[in-house]
Computed example of a mutant assay.
Amino acid sequence: MKGLVYNNGELAGYLQKDSGGQYSFEYEELYFADPQKKAISLTLSKSQRMHLSNELFAFFFGLLSEGVNKDIQCRALRIDENDHFRRLLATAGEDTIGAITVKPE
């Protein structure tokens, strides 16, 4: 599964979960090369193009709903409440807090 990560509507990078459950975030080549483009978060700096994690990056986890809204989304979309990546791809494509959106590839 792969998500396209946008910063104010501009493609900034790619978020992926591999078959082993490892997550990667990779800045898009032109976005990474442009020193005027800011990192999408302090924890996903542009000091390196690729970031790896065994869990969904905290920055992206912070874009997810919690509590009753989480329950409603999971029921409506038929997504396991523990499948944070699928939920992110299904719900973070439009109205998120801040400039970052994530859309399925």
Rank of each mutant, 00 (worst) to 15 (best):
residue 2 K to T: 10
residue 11 L to T: 11
residue 12 A to C: 12
residue 13 G to D: 02
residue 14 Y to A: 00
residue 16 Q to M: 08
residue 17 K to L: 09
residue 17 K to N: 04
residue 19 S to I: 09
residue 19 S to T: 13
residue 19 S to M: 03
residue 20 G to D: 00
residue 21 G to E: 00
residue 27 Y to M: 05
residue 30 L to T: 14
residue 32 F to T: 01
residue 36 Q to L: 00
residue 37 K to Q: 12
residue 40 I to H: 14
residue 40 I to G: 05
residue 40 I to M: 11
residue 41 S to C: 12
residue 44 L to M: 08
residue 48 Q to S: 12
residue 49 R to F: 09
residue 49 R to S: 05
residue 50 M to C: 08
residue 50 M to E: 10
residue 51 H to S: 13
residue 52 L to M: 11
residue 53 S to C: 14
residue 53 S to Q: 12
residue 56 L to M: 13
residue 58 A to P: 01
residue 58 A to V: 03
residue 62 G to S: 07
residue 63 L to Y: 02
residue 64 L to W: 06
residue 71 D to K: 15
residue 72 I to S: 08
residue 74 C to Y: 09
residue 74 C to I: 11
residue 76 A to P: 02
residue 77 L to V: 13
residue 78 R to N: 14
residue 79 I to H: 05
residue 80 D to P: 01
residue 81 E to G: 02
residue 88 L to Y: 02
residue 88 L to C: 03
residue 89 L to Q: 01
residue 89 L to V: 09
residue 90 A to F: 03
residue 91 T to R: 12
residue 93 G to R: 00
residue 94 E to Q: 03
residue 97 I to F: 09
residue 98 G to R: 03
residue 98 G to Y: 03
residue 99 A to K: 15
residue 99 A to N: 15
residue 102 V to N: 11
residue 103 K to I: 11
residue 104 P to D: 06
